[in-house]
Amino acid sequence: MNNGPVVVAFCCNYCSYEAADRAGSAKKNYPENLRIIRVPCSGRVEPEFIVKAFENGADGVMILGCHPGSCHFKTGNHKAYRRYLLLKEILRAAGIDEERVKLDWVGASEDDKLVRVSTEFVEKIRELDTGGG
């Protein structure tokens, strides 16, 4: 059964994980390709996790954290953002399409944004896969 790309999303317990729950309660569909892993904070996400996901066959990885300035743990999301910036540079140099990794800010109430961002991302990955990216 080919269900298309596999996308792992690291969701912060205090924002995007909550937004995903709200999207569920509101029955707002998004692609089944998204596999959410709950983390206490986007700042818990190690760059190794992202590469690990690729090693295991993921086609795309998202990190969804709190908006800048509203991290539950004050600044974990900023750290996640800076790691993401550097990781993208490394991926680019290594020849891995940096677009396969995406960090975005999704607040707890932004179920619509979660649905939009994840749908768009899965679409993007599908394009890269079919386009040989």
Binding site: N3, A20, G24, S25, E32, V115
Partner: peptide, 20 residues
């Protein structure tokens, strides 16, 4: 495992939802 809010309630296709 969050099978309701993050799988059943956000999926259209039963086969894909089952795989997820």
């Amino acid at each position: 495992v969050n099978l309701r809010e993050q799988c059943a309630w956000v999926s259209e296709d039963k086969e894909k939802a089952t795989d997820k």
